[in-house]
Amino acid sequence: MNDIVDRPTRSRMMSGIRNKNTKPEIMVRSWLHKHGFRFKINVRELRGKPDVVCPRYHAVIFVHGCFWHGHECCLFKWPKTRPDFWHEKITQNKARDQRVIDSLLSAGWRVGIVWECALRNSEVDMETILMPLAEWLRSDITTFEVKK
């Protein structure tokens, strides 16, 4: 199946997709800050440059986009154009995510993941969605996921 736009237009569109300071990341960071959590963002010294690092709780939080990280939810759909390319890309992204998580866990960090689909759920307010994240930060549990 052919793309509906030409290659230069698609390239420009794809290059405009940000990889940090996305709307879901800002939502999570704002909520955490409002509730008294202090953190660092995109710490280069840690594998995978986590979106949020809470040194006090020895925890990192990744805010994952459902498409780019291959989350099997209502927001993820395999592209019809260049399916082989996208299947390989998303499969590699998922494998890299797992390697990063394993590396952080073995280094003694706790790892949390907030999925984009959970934040897009308009029927539930942010308090209901992210309060379990706050409880996880204060606990000793190693991993945590917020998903729809």
Results as ranks from 00 to 15, higher is better:
residue 67 F to K: 08
residue 2 N to W: 02
residue 5 V to Y: 10
residue 56 R to D: 10
residue 117 C to I: 01
residue 120 R to P: 00
residue 125 D to G: 07
residue 2 N to A: 09
residue 18 R to K: 14
residue 57 Y to S: 10
residue 62 F to L: 08
residue 92 Q to E: 15
residue 91 T to L: 10
residue 18 R to T: 02
residue 69 H to D: 05
residue 145 E to N: 10
residue 112 G to I: 12
residue 24 P to T: 09
residue 47 R to E: 13
residue 66 C to L: 00
residue 82 R to Y: 10
residue 82 R to I: 01
residue 72 E to P: 01
residue 148 K to H: 13
residue 121 N to A: 11
residue 46 L to W: 08
residue 141 I to P: 01
residue 145 E to M: 03
residue 129 I to M: 06
residue 35 H to C: 09
residue 138 R to I: 06
residue 104 L to W: 05
residue 148 K to Y: 04
residue 106 S to Y: 03
residue 119 L to T: 04
residue 131 M to Y: 12
residue 85 F to H: 13
residue 146 V to N: 06
residue 2 N to S: 08
residue 106 S to L: 13
residue 134 A to H: 15
residue 43 V to R: 12
residue 71 H to W: 03
residue 14 M to T: 02
residue 26 I to Y: 04
residue 34 K to P: 05
residue 108 G to D: 07
residue 145 E to R: 10
residue 145 E to C: 11
residue 40 K to E: 15
residue 62 F to P: 00
residue 70 G to T: 02
residue 114 V to E: 06
residue 43 V to K: 13
residue 146 V to T: 14
residue 45 E to C: 06
residue 74 C to S: 09
residue 102 D to Y: 10
residue 4 I to N: 07
residue 135 E to K: 15
residue 78 W to P: 04
residue 16 G to P: 04
residue 130 L to D: 02
residue 81 T to H: 04
residue 33 H to F: 15
residue 133 L to C: 08
residue 56 R to M: 05
residue 65 G to M: 07
residue 87 H to N: 13
residue 87 H to C: 01
residue 30 S to I: 03
residue 17 I to P: 00
residue 96 R to E: 14
residue 19 N to Q: 08
residue 138 R to Y: 05
residue 140 D to Q: 14
residue 33 H to M: 10
residue 125 D to Y: 02
residue 64 H to Y: 10
residue 68 W to L: 04
residue 57 Y to W: 11
residue 67 F to R: 07
residue 21 N to T: 03
residue 15 S to G: 07
residue 121 N to D: 15
residue 96 R to S: 14
residue 78 W to A: 09
residue 130 L to R: 07
residue 131 M to V: 11
residue 107 A to G: 03
residue 52 V to N: 00
residue 134 A to R: 11
residue 143 T to N: 07
residue 43 V to M: 14
residue 139 S to H: 11
residue 42 N to M: 09
residue 98 Q to D: 09
residue 9 T to I: 07
residue 42 N to G: 12
residue 4 I to P: 07
residue 107 A to R: 09
residue 142 T to I: 12
residue 111 V to C: 01
residue 6 D to Q: 06
residue 95 A to H: 10
residue 139 S to D: 14
residue 7 R to Y: 03
residue 122 S to Y: 12
residue 34 K to N: 13
residue 52 V to D: 01
residue 87 H to T: 08
residue 118 A to L: 08
residue 48 G to N: 07
residue 140 D to T: 12
residue 18 R to I: 00
residue 79 P to M: 01
residue 53 V to R: 02
residue 128 T to H: 05
residue 93 N to Y: 11
residue 47 R to G: 01
residue 45 E to N: 13
residue 3 D to E: 12
residue 119 L to M: 04
